[in-house]
Design a protein around this nucleic acid. Structure first.
Lengths: 218, 218
DNA sequence: AATTAAATTTAGACAAATCTAAAAATAGAT
DNA sequence: ATCTATTTTTAGATTTGTCTAAATTTAATT
């Protein structure tokens, strides 16, 4: 399994190709910042290896083996992210790039030992769930802050957008995972929110609210 | 800097090409288990990049920049080895293969933080010195056990051969770095030694003694 | 149903890193 | 100093992953 193959599987999974849903070559190309023709080539290759189902002009979806492989890479990526933050004091906006490299290290023992060292974490620094060794996903009952009704409360558990600028913005505004959130009011005009976060009242734009996952109370 | 380029620099350094000594393409090819013609190609490439001095038919040696680059890779390799042993309970015969991968991860912060986490180790699990961040080497006053005179004493500080079989052999015979060693007698016939290790008397072959580094007392 | 726009694939090319086989240079022996 | 054996390089081919440009298929519209 080459690094490139692994990256394709990961991308296809992130685009939803794990649920036997067909992902177009265009969508994959855009996500990976490559050309559709390159995706076609790789689709054939992965298909030959039994990792994806590929029908010409119809896009690709992951086979069971493909899903398993993708999950193992995602597992590694997220475990390394936790390691970088918890053990090496990286900030959550610094970890992605390095984890992109570390996720390709081939050593089952290494991953398992890192998992153990971290005491088997369930979520990465951005709140994304870490698949278990046997490829199980811990789905979480979370919704976007922008979809929470007025007066509902919850805890901030993840980010949808984990780009560096967004993460830095959150840091600057003292918005962190684990914070309690209550929706006080919604502004019809621009969909901005008035919220209480850790007791402090603040106003946030729809853009922000639509990229924060909250676990609702009760 | 590609992974392949890094591996060539590392190999040339290990073959002594850091002291403006010319290393033959054949020697490099043999060490890397590749063909001399491939080495020639890479020699040209590295020469163009100013990392090696290359004269046709005369072999290659590292430039100052080449040495610095090689040392930074070796530094990473050895720090990762320490990490694997100290933090993840790998045995010293398991670390090389994984470190060969980890040494190519590109993140200065990552290396520095690993260094810090390990409290700035000076030697790797096989007793090889870890270059400092600015490329300095801590040479050690060590000699091979096979060259120690009768009745001399010392501490086992490193292995010359760090192959898996040799390391496993040492484990099985309770020979570890840090052990005290005294040479009791040498057998002229086969150059085998009678030694006292950690108070216990034992006999070892020349083959073994010629691959153990000892720091002599006084 | 025919036409057109968009998406997708094919064909052919390229760069990196490797190989084989043949040619060239070096070094050792007489 | 010449010859020969060895080492080293060159030339051309291969594989992987990518690209561009052209051709094909699909989907949308009328």
């Amino acid at each position: 399994m080459t690094r490139s193959e692994e990256n394709y599987l990961k991308t296809i999974f992130h685009l939803g190709g794990g649920d036997s849903k067909s992902i177009t070559t265009n969508a994959i190309a855009e996500q990976m910042e490559t050309k559709p023709s390159s995706v076609t080539d790789m689709a054939k290759k992965l298909s030959e290896k039994g990792l994806v189902d590929y029908v010409r002009y119809q896009g690709v979806s992951l086979t069971a083996v493909g899903v398993k492989t993708a999950l193992s890479i995602i597992r590694k990526h997220r475990l390394w992210e936790v390691f970088l933050v918890k053990k090496l004091d990286f900030t959550w906006d610094e970890v992605h790039e390095v984890a992109e490299q570390l996720e390709h290290i081939k050593s089952e023992k290494l991953v398992d030992k890192i998992d153990e060292l971290l005491d088997f974490p369930k979520y990465d620094p951005h709140g994304d769930p870490i698949p278990t060794k046997d490829g199980k996903f811990q789905e979480r009952d979370e919704k976007l802050l922008s979809e929470m009704p007025i007066n509902s409360q919850g805890v901030c558990v993840g980010v949808k957008d984990s780009s560096v600028p967004f993460l830095k913005f959150l840091d600057k505004n003292r918005i962190a995972l684990g914070n309690t959130i209550k929706v006080l009011d919604k502004e019809d005009f621009d969909n901005s929110l008035r919220i209480q976060m850790e007791g402090k009242e603040m106003r946030i734009s729809h853009q922000i609210a639509a990229n924060l996952y909250v676990k609702k109370n009760d």
